[in-house]
């Protein structure tokens, strides 16, 4: 029997697969396709201090092997999420990770501490890397000292383990990872989307109303693998990997690069059943490449110098 279970701070995962933040709402829509209890965990759509309406449309565009999005963190706000969404997910036998975002340190602190009011959430994913929100203007995700500051504040405000979600839009990803580890992060989550743009020929203007959007999907997988591979060698905290995962082979590749669990985003749009299909295919895939468990494969792709 192949063992799919993974144990991470705050998370006893029965398997390493979870839908990525923003690609699965709060689970309701996908619960009509399959039992969410099959998933290792669910990462919820970002929560902010108060509700946000998000960006004007168009908010998405298709690219070669991927897509751009600039949703702009549309969400009802942390209180409504705790009241209306968390209990729904809490009824399933799966772990819940709350993705939190904000424009100011105060907003992050408020969202993090508000999640203390429910005992149904198992961990926080601290989104310091959303490229699609302009207000506030502070780019927590690209400045190591700001990333450190927001991590410290959220750690202090929350009783839950904190996984900091890193932005790939930086020159030195290892520096960012080390900064948030030093600030007390319990884990990392990587990668968020890569900032991109598409120009619509008939109108001669950027297609996405926000002008830029975040690139996701298979196109970004090699970037994610490279960054996880680099970071894994310099930090001791576990990594939840993501970026272009669409099948069990991709999951194994992320494990080999150093991820301990894997989130699936854009692939849910092409195939709403992608997560359960990956979970079903994972034992056979691990066996085929000589592994008896998920934990055995973590970091095995890293060549010692």
């Amino acid at each position: 029997m192949t063992n799919l279970a993974v144990r991470l701070p705050g998370l006893e995962l029965k398997n390493p697969i979870m839908p990525a933040s923003g690609c699965f709402g709060f689970g309701r829509e996908y619960s009509s396709f399959y039992d969410l209890g099959k998933l290792g965990a669910v990462i919820m759509k970002a929560a902010t201090g108060t509700g946000r309406l998000g960006n004007p449309t168009p908010r998405v565009a298709e690219t070669a092997s991927g897509m751009l999005n600039a949703i702009g963190l549309q969400n009802p706000g942390v209180e409504k999420i705790i009241e209306n969404e968390v209990p729904f997910l809490g009824a399933y036998d799966t772990c819940i990770i709350a993705n939190i975002a904000g424009s100011t340190l105060e907003e992050y602190e408020k969202v993090a501490s508000t999640f203390n009011e429910t005992n149904l959430v198992h961990a926080l994913e601290l989104n310091i890397s959303c490229p699609n929100v302009k207000e506030g203007g502070i780019q927590f995700g690209t400045d190591p000292s700001l990333a450190q500051a927001v991590t410290e504040i959220v750690k202090k405000a929350s009783k839950l383990p904190v996984y900091v979600k890193l932005s790939p839009n930086v020159t030195n990803i290892v520096e960012m990872a080390k900064a948030v580890e030093a600030a007390g992060a319990d884990g990392l989550s990587m990668i968020n989307t890569l900032t991109g743009m598409q120009i619509h020929l008939p109108s001669r203007k950027p297609l996405i109303a926000n002008k830029t959007g975040g690139l996701s999907g298979p196109a970004i997988k090699p970037v994610a693998i490279r960054m996880i591979y680099e970071v894994k060698q310099h930090v001791d905290i576990p990594i939840i990997g993501m970026g272009g995962v669409s099948n069990a082979e991709d999951v194994l590749e992320f494990l080999l690069a150093g991820a301990s669990a894997v989130a699936v985003g854009t692939a849910n749009f092409s195939n709403p059943y992608v997560c359960p299909e990956i979970i079903d295919a994972l034992p056979e895939t691990l066996e085929r490449y000589g592994f008896n468990s998920v934990e055995e494969a973590i970091g095995k792709g890293i060549m010692s110098v």
């Binding site: 309701r28 449309t57 999005n69 849910n268």
Partner: peptide, 8 residues
């Protein structure tokens, strides 16, 4: 299906 908030 109503999950991603793209088409609003």
């Amino acid at each position: 299906v109503g999950a991603c908030m793209a088409c609003v």
